[in-house]
Structure formats: C-alpha cells, structure tokens
Amino acid sequence: MWIFEVLGFGQKGWGGLLIVAALMTLCVTTVALIIGAILGTMVAAAKLSGNKFLRTLGNIYTTVFRGVPELLIIYLIYFGGSGAVTAIGRYLGYEGFLGLPSFAAGALAVGIISGAYQAEVYRGAFLAIPKGELEAAEAIGMHRGLRFRRIIAPQVLRFAIPGIGNVWQLSLKDSALVSVTGLADLMRTSQVAAGSTRQYLLFFVVGGCLYLVLTALSDRLFTGAERRANRSMPSSFSQA
C-alpha cells in the first residue's frame, strides 16, 4: 500500500513531518494569540479611554487590521520587517540582505490581526460588566490597579472566552497564510509533500484533516472553559 508508505513514519513517509508541522502551526498561533492579547488589551483600553486622540488611534487600528487582507499584512511584516532588519544591519556595518525569521514575522503578523479582533472582544466584555460592580469596588476603597486586577480583569476574561475562542479559530486558519514566508507549518509541509510526491489530492486532504482536528479540539477546549467560567451565572445563562 503506497498510501501507508508516503503517509507513514518510515524513511519515505511524511507522517512525522506532518505531525511536527501541525505542532508548528499550533506554536505560531499560540504566540500570535499572546501578541494579540497584549495588543488587543492596549487597543481596547485606547478605544474605551476618554482621550479623543487615543480613541481615534484605536479605531484606525481595528478598522485597518480587520479590513485589509491577511496576506497583505503578512507581506507588510515580512518584507517590511526584513527591510528594517537589513537597514539596521547596514548601519552596524553588515552588507547584504538580512531576512526577518519567518516564524517571528508570521507570529507577529497573525498577532497584529488577532489583536484587532481581540480588542473588539475585550471592549465588548468590559462594557458587559455591570457598572454597579465597578462602583462597589470604588466604594470599598479599591484603587485603580486593584480594581483592574480583582474586578475588571477576571470578569472581562469570563465574558471574553467565547470571543477569544472565535479569534483563536480565526488565527489558526490565518496561520496557514504564513506558509508564504517559507515557514514549515502544516500548510507549507502539505504543499511540499504534495509537490514532491505528486500526490496533491492526498496531501491536501490529509493536511486539511489535520487542521480539522486542531479546530475541533480547540473548540472543545473553549466550550469547556466557557462552561467553567460561567459557573457563577444562573443556570439559564450557562445553557444559552
């Protein structure tokens, strides 16, 4: 059976490489989610702030990075980042082209996009906190930092879990586009395997199935987390 041979873990098999590639996809997406969480929190804070300039800046960020094709943003970060690195290299006396590592460029690009979506998620979650609970925290003498840490952050996180789950699924699929920078993720490895064995159908189906496994598993994970986080809610709410 040739299928087992090309998909197996033997010398001619691509099985092992595909598994490693799937882990690489998970890795890029995870780093992107973290970058996006940091950017998203900052952008959400800017959009919620009283300062008009910051608010406009936040709005521009979310409009641009949710409205422009992901591929274009990856090009911007990869080529633009490499240009910047090359310029720094030249300044330090190194002649020639320096590329931004494709993992860093990919994670950063997907993270920037993810940050735009996460900002909307966090903003919505903040607005969902009953105003009275924030007042009660003020009334008891909590200062800003404590209020954020004890009352706002845990509740934002709770309300944000379904949204973060959606953003994660989005980023998981966006990460496939990072393959254009040559990163050996699941997409790229399926492509290379398909090209070198001429078994296009087989490898794109197998690659697609591995993506389905990743999205289905993470869906489970987030549903479980949501249920856990909503245990403080009336039962009608958690069932909805």
Partner: peptide, 19 residues
C-alpha cells in the same frame, strides 16, 4: 469552516486534475 481557505483552494487547483 474548520479548515483554512488556502488548503481548500490548493486542493481544488492542484487536486481536481487527479480525478
């Protein structure tokens, strides 16, 4: 909905001819 569009597109572009 669960797999990336890019892999679907490659499947159509490269894979269909195999049938």
């Amino acid at each position: 909905r669960g797999s990336p569009l890019l892999i679907q597109m490659f499947l159509v572009f490269y894979g269909l001819g195999q049938f």
